[in-house]
């Protein structure tokens, strides 16, 4: 059986044996970015390094989305996660019932990846979310 090709949903998600998020980190002040920047929005310097973002964090904020554009399955939990190394990430909470009784501010979460779709060439798209721990 041929191995299935996989691609990450966004380029800052690094997939493999141990998936993680990769940020571009300002060489001067340490501000992190998930997209390319011409200069640091915080300090204006132009040197950046790659940084590995911690997979563990806490739920800093969320919304349980019941109304979305056509084709997007609802309800889902949109979350702001503050990682252990102080980077805020936005993604969905996964493997958790989407209600205020189960989704709690301050709860500990951990990065989780899953296959979110397959294209016509049979390539799988790997997405990430955060799972309560």
């Amino acid at each position: 059986m041929a191995s299935t090709q996989q691609v990450p949903i966004v380029d800052y998600l690094r997939i493999g044996v141990r998936p993680y998020l990769r940020a571009s980190e300002c060489g001067n002040c340490g501000a992190r970015y998930f997209d390319r920047r011409n200069a640091c929005a915080r300090c204006g310097r132009v040197e950046f390094n790659n940084a590995r973002v911690s997979n563990r964090g806490v739920l800093r904020s969320f919304s349980i989305v019941h109304r979305a554009a056509p084709g997007i399955p609802v309800p889902y939990v949109s979350a702001l996660v503050e990682t252990e190394d102080g980077t805020t990430v936005r993604s969905n909470i996964v493997d958790c019932p989407p209600d205020p009784e189960h989704v709690k501010l301050g709860m500990k979460v951990r990065l989780a990846t899953y296959v979110a779709g397959t294209d016509d060439a049979g390539t799988e798209c790997v997405a990430f979310g955060y799972r309560p721990v």
């Binding site: 949903i9 966004v10 979305a68 979110a116």
Partner: peptide, 20 residues
């Protein structure tokens, strides 16, 4: 066919997948 596009190299629409 998944092709990275945009500033985050997204291969598909992310609204509802990577938060809202």
């Amino acid at each position: 066919v998944y092709e990275p596009a945009g500033r985050y190299g997204a291969v598909t629409a992310v609204d509802g997948v990577l938060g809202t």
